[in-house]
Amino acid sequence: MTVSTPCIKVCRIDPESRLCTGCWRSLDEIATWGGLSEADRLAVMASLPARKARFAASSGPSIPPA
């Protein structure tokens, strides 16, 4: 069985937001990912583009490239 994941193997944790700027998951989401149902993983993944956009809007141009 394949587990859905947004991980791109570029792990950089932003110290203020505590989000990985590679996949945009929180540390808690990363830690519990394997125990989530596929439906829950897909729900988190659906929220990541908006999370990335909010982070970009609040951080300006200093975001490290993913």
Rank of each mutant, 00 (worst) to 15 (best):
P6Q: 10
A56R: 13
C7Q: 10
R41H: 06
I13V: 15
R54H: 01
I8K: 10
S47I: 05
R54F: 03
T5N: 06
A66N: 09
I8E: 04
R12D: 07
G34D: 14
L42K: 15
D28H: 11
C11T: 08
I13M: 12
D40Q: 12
S47K: 03
R25G: 06
S26Y: 00
W24R: 02
D28G: 09
M1K: 15
R25F: 07
C11W: 06
A46K: 12
A43T: 02
R18W: 12
V44C: 00
L19F: 06
D28W: 07
T21N: 02
C23T: 09
R41F: 04
L36H: 02
M1V: 15
A66E: 10
P6R: 11
T32P: 00
T2V: 10
D40R: 10
I8D: 07
G35F: 13
M1D: 14
T21S: 01
R54S: 00
T5L: 05
G34K: 13
C7M: 12
T2N: 11
L42V: 10
G22T: 09
I30C: 07
K9T: 00
S47W: 01
F55Y: 14
C7D: 09
S37P: 04
G35S: 12
G60F: 01
A46F: 08
S17Q: 08
G60L: 00
I13Y: 07
R18Q: 15
L19P: 04
A50P: 03
A46L: 14
S47N: 05
A39K: 11
R12Q: 14
T32C: 04
L27D: 09
C23H: 11
A31W: 01
M1N: 12
E29L: 07
P65K: 08
A53M: 09
T2Y: 10
R54M: 02
G34C: 10
L42C: 08
